[in-house]
């Protein structure tokens, strides 16, 4: 199992992501954004979190035009599995690989804390080791996590089981930290090979650090 992790100027979660996947037995490679191809032995491509290009213009907007993104789009359109975490989710939404957009948090504050999430749909590679309605606890750390999609798009997300996770309290009741429409924290594309979420599963790999709920999520890709 080979996980390739993208690195843009300003990415800062690539080493956490590398460590998380290596702890599960995967081999990893960090790929600088100037590369115009994805290593052929890649089983999963991760767009890691951070602040690519300083979040200039809009979070993720400039990274969309890095050389590597043409290769990422080709890889995803060919059925390759792609996971975008936090800024990676913003990049995938900006590039059109995932529907919707991430706006400034409704409270205008940068949020950095653990938050509970409810599994909405586990019929996919990413969440298959969890059950629907399972409540998990992951760190969130973002300024632009306010997910928006128009009504028509929202209906399509539900119709195609593309809503992955919602922000909740510990009992699974909706609790919305950032104003996201329907409290949505993560979505996938219609073909279910491109996944994006604002919370950080790669930072939830050890109980000592507050949660190990990320293990089951990332392991889904390893047992694909």
């Amino acid at each position: 199992m080979k996980v390739t992790i993208l690195q843009f100027p300003g990415t800062n979660c690539e080493y956490d992501t590398k460590s998380a996947f290596e702890s599960l037995g995967a081999t990893t490679e960090i790929l600088w954004h100037k590369s115009d191809e994805i290593p052929t032995d890649t089983n999963l491509l991760v767009v890691a979190g951070g602040f690519s290009y300083g979040d200039y213009l809009r979070s993720g907007a400039i990274a969309t035009f890095s050389p590597v993104m043409q290769a990422v789009i080709k890889y995803a359109n060919g059925g390759g599995k792609v996971l975008g975490i936090c800024n990676g989710f913003q990049v995938l939404a900006e590039s059109g690989l995932l529907p919707g957009a991430l706006m400034r948090n409704s409270g205008l504050h940068f949020l950095s804390k653990h938050h509970h999430l409810k599994v909405v749909d586990n019929d996919n590679t990413f969440l298959k080791e969890l059950a629907n309605d399972d409540v998990i606890n992951l760190p969130i750390a973002h300024h632009d996590g306010n997910y928006f999609i128009d009504n028509k798009g929202l209906k399509e997300l539900y119709a195609n089981n593309q809503v992955l996770l919602k922000y909740t309290d510990k009992d699974g009741n909706i609790s919305n930290p950032n104003g996201s429409i329907d409290s949505i924290a993560g979505v996938c594309n219609k073909e279910k090979n491109v996944f994006g979420l604002m919370p950080h599963p790669e930072r939830a790999m050890e109980l000592l650090l507050g949660s190990d709920d990320g293990i089951k999520m990332l392991r889904g890709f390893l047992n694909a």
């Binding site: 213009l57 907007a61 969309t64 035009f65």
Partner: peptide, 8 residues
Amino acid sequence: DLLANTVI
């Protein structure tokens, strides 16, 4: 293509 995100 770049300056605006026409979703929002």
